[in-house]
Design a protein around this nucleic acid. Structure first.
Lengths: 211, 211
DNA sequence: TACCATATCATACAAACGTATGACTGTCAA
DNA sequence: TTGACAGTCATACGTTTGTATGATATGGTA
């Protein structure tokens, strides 16, 4: 794309629409956001969505991919680093939570889509497959070297990844429960440590807790 | 209510609307369900929602309460039983998951509302307050007798309750990951055991996992 | 019987929805 | 200079939305 018609701002119409769509779909979900909301926020013409993306749903999928792809790439990159399985899981959880604290899109939309009983949009299904696959691979490796407890790697992977997603999505609840400001970095550090510690304890191959 | 106008079916118009609203809001969320969808499923007149509930949003809140109240009462009842804190947490997690497997409404709607950045509907906010409060009380008790590890009881409570909610909501993903039928009772038992075990390990006061 | 409150029903209404249309504008290749 | 083309724009179309309205039916009460 070389020329942008009447566009006088620095960013292209298509990118402005995508950014507005990311924000609004994240905050309210697909059905609660109208095309007119999006073009108003992007300050572009109503017809621009149809022209550049074809339909509201196609724009939705484009917005999902633009959020899911960087997250999946980050997790894959962290998971591929060398080290003991438990430490790599720790790094994945911390990296994922740090990314999600800055980018609320993936957890918000993932939880909404999981809660629906419609088919998962392809970008979200791919994200889950990639993330859970990477985590399950680490878990299987840890089971072979004895550092991670027995159990279905896929199920353990769900337990692991559910924590950063849920804690991020339930951030309002967490901060209200803790009675502190949600943007306080000290509190974010405490939450991150708590999540990492909980995950490590829940999957490590320690003796069973006596009843 | 003693008399039901023209109603010839066994259940009242109001109850039929409530039941249809529970199903549809659970499956698709507030915005994706129209009043016409609800009255069609309930096989009542379009005007009946306004007449009996006042508005679509008031019907939504009524439907939420009718799902959240039994769940909160169940958790409170299990939490109040005698026993060691870790065992009571175990019973709460198992009881909650069993209830949620039969009643998908609370997790679906809770996750959707958490993902939104609008204020939580009062019935959902009350549900969270009651559930997390009951669990946090058990946790604080366990911290006093040394059976549960240190940490903010509210944060630990979020970790505990997030598991049954997330596993239930992500049931499609879990069953696909396990490659089995989602209604298989054996698999449900395995999932329940896995969740209970993960929760117990994540909060028990065992020595830290070495790095 | 007459009356009244309650409930159901078919419509109507304005607003908002996603999408389509055709005119217009500015840049490139020929 | 001109034709083609990609992008932007105002506007319109047909649906669907939540809610309102007024008529009608029904059983209790006087």
């Amino acid at each position: 794309m070389i020329w942008y018609g009447r566009m006088t701002d620095q960013s292209s119409t298509k990118e402005r629409i995508l950014a507005a769509a990311r924000d609004l779909f994240t905050q309210r979900g697909f059905e609660a956001v109208s095309v007119r909301d999006i073009v108003a926020r992007a300050r572009v013409n109503l017809g621009a969505v149809t022209y550049h993306f074809g339909s509201k749903e196609a724009l939705y999928h484009a917005a999902l991919s633009s959020m899911a792809d960087p997250f999946a790439a980050l997790v894959a990159q962290i998971a591929a680093r060398p080290g003991a399985p438990l430490d790599r899981l720790d790094a994945v959880v911390r990296g994922a939570l740090a990314h999600l604290l800055d980018n609320p899109g993936p957890p918000a939309i993932l939880l909404r889509e999981l809660a629906s009983d419609r088919p998962l949009p392809p970008p979200i299904a791919n994200l889950m497959r990639r993330n859970l696959g990477a985590v399950a691979t680490i878990i299987a490796e840890g089971q072979r070297d004895g550092s991670i407890r027995q159990g279905d790697p896929a199920l353990l992977a769900v337990t692991v990844m559910s924590q950063p997603f849920f804690v991020r999505a339930a951030r309002r609840v967490v901060t209200v429960a803790l009675g502190a400001d949600s943007s306080d970095p000290d509190q974010q550090a405490r939450i991150t440590d708590h999540v990492a510690e909980s995950v490590r304890r829940s999957v490590a191959n320690t003796p069973p807790v006596p009843s």
